[in-house]
Design a protein around this nucleic acid. Sequence first.
DNA 1: GTCTATAAGGCGATAGAC
DNA 2: GTCTATCGCCTTATAGAC
Lengths: 200, 200
Amino acid sequence: MLPVSQKKIKPTGSAYDRILFTASDLFYQQGYRATGINEVIEKAGVAKATFYSHFSTKDDLCLAYLKNRNGKELAEIEDYISTKARPVDRFLAVIESLEPWIIGNGMKGCGFLNMVPEVPDAGSPLRKEGELHYARLRTRVKELAGELIKSKPKRYGHLHAQTLADDYMVVLTGAIALAEISHDIWPIKQGVEAVRRLIH
Amino acid sequence: MLPVSQKKIKPTGSAYDRILFTASDLFYQQGYRATGINEVIEKAGVAKATFYSHFSTKDDLCLAYLKNRNGKELAEIEDYISTKARPVDRFLAVIESLEPWIIGNGMKGCGFLNMVPEVPDAGSPLRKEGELHYARLRTRVKELAGELIKSKPKRYGHLHAQTLADDYMVVLTGAIALAEISHDIWPIKQGVEAVRRLIH
DNA sequence: GTCTATAAGGCGATAGAC
DNA sequence: GTCTATCGCCTTATAGAC
């Protein structure tokens, strides 16, 4: 028979990784303020003292979550772009990668957009991380727009890279937010078509 | 000399109105979960028992806030539309009314979008109110799109009312969300121009 | 309607023993 | 790294007196 005190502990990863992984899932799925530090500790299978040896505060943990998420999401988008060869497909790749991602995590939307209303202080490092995420996306989309325009000047020469990128960003963000509040996938599909129309 | 115990109480309105007004401001400005019932009670200048005689729970108060906000916002948009005569101006009025509104409340974004991450339960009546708000907006924008198309069939006859309205909604939502997380007004100005381009 | 008191529990964070 | 115990505070909500 198994010892009574045996606990289910995620077998893989260090204590730090288990905490970060568990917190990332909980913060994203049920929100930052709705997730207690005790819940993270329990589900990560670590002791309280262990938690506080790795993270000084709950905010510190949240910042680690956002930084990690920032790197991962941009890397995933980059991976998807790299599977495409034609500039037009690379340009469309960013918003096309949205649909499986949104569906895959139950229409919970963007972790950065969702964090904003939970952190009222606009100067918080947590908010800066969200700002940074969208600024990076905007820069990348502008690059892809520029490459698209240069690739076929006769066809796309009338377009302006920054304007095109900014339209793209507004549509991309709107598709995510509207899908979340509407609990429907239509804004995502609409967003993909809207970006297609931007270059036609 | 004034009595020591004198409190600052908003002179206008019933206790119910003061509670609802105060809570609306606090929920919107600093978030639902970050706002305690005690803070609402104190700033509204009512007694705890008075509060609980009007609202059974904090959620009940939040629902009243959202319903009230829903009615008010749509009425304000309708007022702005009614100042315009030409169908194209009425069509553009919805997103044009955004800029002063967003700037006026310090880039805090949409109260309904902001409420979603704070209420993880997708079946909650609070979430339904947000869904309803955007569904109503979508319906209204489709009407305005239909009127625009009918007004000049030779110019706008190639457009499809539902597609145009859905593009509009994605842009509108994205402009609000992106302005909030970027702490910048550019997405709003971009959104207005993007909607103009939709019909050109 | 007002006031104060308090229940009952969760929160983030710390301390001590092993 | 583990465990348990606890601090001080805040939360929602209720009760009783006026």
